[in-house]
C-alpha cells in the first residue's frame, strides 16, 4: 500500500514524464481444452461427461506467455516462446497485435486454420460495460468491465487498472480507461493474467519486425472466415478450436 502511495506521488508530481514512459506487461495465458469440449454440439451428453470425468478432472490448463509493450500512442502484443523444461518444446504460435491509437489503426497477424492472416483496419474498441467490482492484481487496484464477442460466442470479463493510464490490453482486448491486467473468457475457459508489470522506455520495443507476411484482409472478412470455419467444422464433427486461436 505504501508503494501505491509512493507511486501516486510520482504520478502526481511528474505526470508529463509518466506519459512519455512506457509499460511492458507479461501475461500468462491459460487455456482449458476440457471446458471447450463442452461446447461441441455434435457430441452427446454421454461423450461430454465422459471427457469431463476422465481427463477433464486433471486439466490444469495449457499455459503460454505473451508480452504487451505499450506507449500512450501505440501498443504491441506478441506471443513469447515457452521456456525449455527439459523435454520436447512446441512451436510458439505466430501472433502479433499492433495498435496505433493516434492514427486509430490496427494491424493483427494471426495463424488461422493453417494460414497466416494480416488484418489491417481501423481500430474499433469493444463495447464495454463497467461493473461495480474491484480487485487487486499485481499491486494494482482493478475494476471490472464486461463485453461480448458474438462471432466467437464469448463472454469477456476484463479487469483494468486506472492507475496505469494506457488504453491497451492483451491480445484483442483494449479500450478501457486503464491497462487491462486480467481477462477471463466464458467463466474460465481462457484466462489472461498479468504476471509482471514493468515501467520503462519502450520506443525500441515497439518497432515492428521487418518482414511481416500474411494474407491481407479486413476485420469484416476475418469475422466472416471465422463464422464459416465454425459452421463447417461443427457440421463435419470437428473441433473448430483445434485450428484457430481461441
Amino acid at each position: 500500500m505504501k508503494k501505491l502511495f509512493a507511486l501516486f506521488l510520482v504520478i502526481a508530481g511528474l505526470p508529463a514524464l509518466a506519459q512519455s514512459d512506457g509499460l511492458v506487461v507479461t501475461y500468462e495465458r491459460t487455456f482449458f481444452w476440457s471446458k471447450v469440449y463442452e461446447k461441441l454440439t455434435f457430441l452427446s451428453e454421454e461423450e461430454k461427461s465422459r471427457m469431463k470425468n476422465s481427463w477433464g478432472v486433471n486439466d490444469e490448463g495449457w499455459k503460454s506467455k505473451g508480452q504487451l509493450v505499450a506507449s500512450p500512442g501505440q501498443s504491441k502484443y506478441v506471443e513469447l516462446e515457452e521456456e525449455a523444461d527439459g523435454g520436447y518444446r512446441g512451436r510458439k504460435s505466430e501472433y502479433l497485435v499492433f495498435r496505433d491509437f493516434d492514427k486509430a489503426r490496427k494491424m493483427e497477424l494471426e495463424e488461422f486454420a493453417g494460414k497466416m492472416l494480416l488484418i489491417e483496419d481501423t481500430l474499433i474498441a469493444p463495447k464495454w460495460k463497467v461493473m461495480n467490482k474491484i480487485k487487486e492484481i499485481g499491486g494494482y487496484m482493478c475494476m471490472m468491465a464486461v463485453s461480448e464477442d458474438s462471432i466467437k460466442g464469448q463472454k469477456i470479463e476484463a479487469w483494468f487498472a486506472n492507475d496505469l493510464a494506457y488504453g491497451s490490453g492483451p491480445e484483442r482486448y483494449y479500450g478501457l480507461p486503464g491497462m487491462i491486467l486480467e481477462v477471463d473468457v466464458n467463466d474460465g475457459e481462457m484466462l489472461l493474467t498479468a504476471i509482471k508489470v514493468e515501467k520503462k522506455p519502450v520506443a525500441e520495443l515497439l518497432a515492428l519486425p521487418k518482414k511481416i507476411k500474411g494474407k491481407k484482409i479486413t476485420t469484416t472478412e476475418y469475422e466472416k472466415m471465422m463464422t464459416t470455419h465454425f459452421r463447417d467444422s461443427i457440421k463435419s464433427r470437428r473441433n473448430p478450436y483445434w485450428a484457430v486461436r481461441y
Binding site: R50, S54, N58
Partner: peptide, 10 residues
Amino acid sequence: YQDFKGSQSF
C-alpha cells in the same frame, strides 16, 4: 474403461 477409471483413465 473411461467411465470406470474416471480421472485415473490415463
